[in-house]
Design a protein around this nucleic acid. Structure first.
Lengths: 144, 144
DNA sequence: GCCTAATAGTTAGGGTGCCTAACAGTCAAG
DNA sequence: CTTGACTGTTAGGCACCCTAACTATTAGGC
């Protein structure tokens, strides 16, 4: 790939990323849950999980995961359950309220997103769909 | 598009956005310029621009643009030039040093990005390339 | 010409979400 | 039983965005 082309691609890529993230955040801001909180809850909906694994899955550091969990716990959406096999470990588990709240938040958000996705052509939706795994791979390649 | 499918697409989309932005930021953090600063400088490289237009182009509010410009001006990379036709207006213009710094930063960043893009297949690169306009459109559709 | 309304930008204060460094507690291995 | 590795928390800090409230200037109606 041409260097100049690459530079332009990279610049545009960075630009739309920034915009996209903040647009998504502004949608999330209307609701009960922030973007990162939803992301964490969605992870925990599959299975209870310890802090370190939350961090690893989210691609963030352990203290950042602690922070998110602390917020969620304060809101009563998750609970910390000490592991009985290893006293260092904390299992984080959705509460019933957490599950309800997440469900509602996902629905609400989905309505907004669906409205936006509907304004795209099938080709465009497909383009985003196809790009997602590539961006995931790029994220890994760019990670330290 | 199916609701469930859409929900999953939206969730994954949100997830990779967050990761991608912070990965890019961590690359930028090694250099002289932050992500937002580079983005602003790149915009100004084309032409001098007033604060309001910077904000509009970047999809941010005017005070946020002021903040970025203030940082850049403090670093000597841009200068505020009062308009002589309208005393309320401030034109922001790259300094020579700003131009040099931006060029160097773009080169350095490009090396990093190119390395990452090289680890993708041509198909994957193409997928990202094609998705960019679609994401741009989605950003607009999601904006308030 | 003057007052009012609109407009450009700044300042102040706040919030999210990430980071590193330093720490406490627990476990495992010699 | 001590040393070293590991899990999570705390403290402090930074990038980047926001809204609300302000100042200065311009423009339009009377």
């Amino acid at each position: 790939m041409d260097i100049v082309e690459n530079l332009e691609l990279a610049a545009r890529y960075r630009e739309i990323l920034r915009q996209a993230l903040y647009v998504v955040r502004s949608i999330d801001a209307d609701g009960e849950l922030s973007t990162a909180q939803t992301s964490t809850l969605n992870m925990l909906a599959a299975a209870p999980m310890r802090i370190g694994l939350i961090a690893r899955n989210a691609g963030i550091r352990v203290p950042s995961a602690t922070e998110q969990v602390t917020k969620l716990a304060a809101a009563g959406l998750v609970e910390r359950v000490p592991s009985h096999t290893d006293a260092r470990v904390v299992e984080v588990r959705l509460t019933e309220e957490g599950r309800r709240t997440l469900k509602a938040a996902n629905l609400r958000r989905n309505r907004e997103m669906a409205r936006a996705f509907d304004s795209l052509s099938p080709r465009e939706r497909q383009a985003i769909n196809l790009a997602i795994p590539a961006i995931e791979k790029l994220n890994v390649a760019l990670s330290p």
